[in-house]
């Protein structure tokens, strides 16, 4: 069973069709990339999946449960961890306080006992702090523990935000441009870190990312969005050379690509292949994705068909 199954997700803002029939699947322990030019609808997709937007149509299924209409805070409690494009943290608090705040859904004492106090609450508060310290240790950020978030550098903040997302004890992690504000060296480290985290916590990830080397190095599978529609999907190496993707990023048309991908037998083969649920397996980057799209010579499965239809 896949962790996250999004089908035919559409949302319209006034005259703008921000998302149209987005379908994507994230399997256990996979790191799936969601890429696309600015304004393609990546963050909108995130917001729909995490419950911040209510999609007009379509479904979001998490481990077999329909969570399309579940509010975001409940999804966080279910195991959806997410980060934001512009750093989602409580800026006036310290790093430690933020990491404790992020564990909100895991706190077991209720409001009444919080107000009355007592040893149980104190014990749990200490446990929250200990967990926060462990996360800081893991990220190598112990020295900022008692600093206020507002004064930290952007790169540190992005990393801390990842720490906060981890503090929510997620099952699936949705990262919105985790490498923004980082240099090439830092984002390389981030890639290593994401792979390590997946191994350490058994995480499944969906990430929006612009930094191509990072996507290539960590993602098992990539979905490409353009103008709210799925343009292509496949393994990173395939996506990298996909003519339409290249065209979408650089501008212009790709008629040859269109023509080249309208071969129905291959498409059918791909559909058949992806319909088989991939068995859960330990995260061995790239190999996991190889199973998902064996017919990797067929670059795109949906976008060309839609273009032909419209």
């Amino acid at each position: 069973m896949s962790v996250l199954e999004v089908s035919d997700l559409s949302i319209r803002f006034g005259g703008l069709q921000a998302l149209q029939d987005l379908t994507l699947t994230v399997n256990e322990f996979e790191i799936v990339g969601l890429i696309g030019p600015n304004g393609a609808g990546k963050t909108t997709a995130f917001n729909c999946i995490t419950g911040f937007y209510k999609p007009d149509t379509g479904r979001v299924v998490y481990r077999g449960t329909d969570v399309t209409r579940t509010p975001p805070h409940k999804k966080a409690a279910m195991g959806f961890g997410r980060t934001f494009q512009n750093v989602g943290m409580v800026k006036s608090s310290t790093v430690l306080e933020n990491l404790k705040t992020a564990q909100h859904a895991r706190v077991r004492y209720d409001v009444a006992s919080a107000l009355l106090g007592g040893s149980r609450v104190a014990t749990e508060e200490r446990a929250l702090a200990a967990k926060a310290d462990a996360i800081l240790e893991l990220l190598g950020l112990t020295e900022v523990r008692d600093l206020r978030v507002g004064g930290l550098s952007y790169g540190t903040l992005k990393l801390l935000e990842l720490g906060c997302a981890l503090a929510t004890e997620p099952d699936v992690l949705l990262l919105d441009e985790p490498s923004s504000g980082m240099g090439p060296e830092e984002s390389h480290q981030l890639g290593e870190r994401l792979l390590d985290l997946r191994k350490a916590f058994g995480l499944t990830m969906l990430l929006i990312e612009h930094h191509v080397p990072l996507v290539l190095s960590v993602c098992d599978y990539v979905y490409v969005l353009n103008f709210g529609r799925l343009l292509a999907e496949g393994r990173p190496s395939v996506i990298q050379t996909h003519p339409e993707v290249v065209a979408a990023y650089l501008g212009g048309e790709a008629p040859e690509a269109l023509a080249a991908t309208e071969e129905t037998p291959e498409e059918a083969a791909l559909d058949e292949a992806t319909a088989v649920p991939a068995p859960r397996k330990q995260p061995v980057a790239k190999k996991a994705a190889a199973k998902k799209s064996p017919a990797s010579s067929a670059p795109a499965k949906k976008a060309p068909a839609k273009k032909a239809a419209s």
Binding site: H73, G81, G88, E97, H104, C164
Partner: peptide
């Protein structure tokens, strides 16, 4: 902590559960 998070940014608060 929840109230402070809410005061600053409701979306972040919701993402924290």
């Amino acid at each position: 902590r929840a109230l402070l998070a809410l005061k600053e940014n409701e979306r972040v608060a919701e993402a924290f559960g």
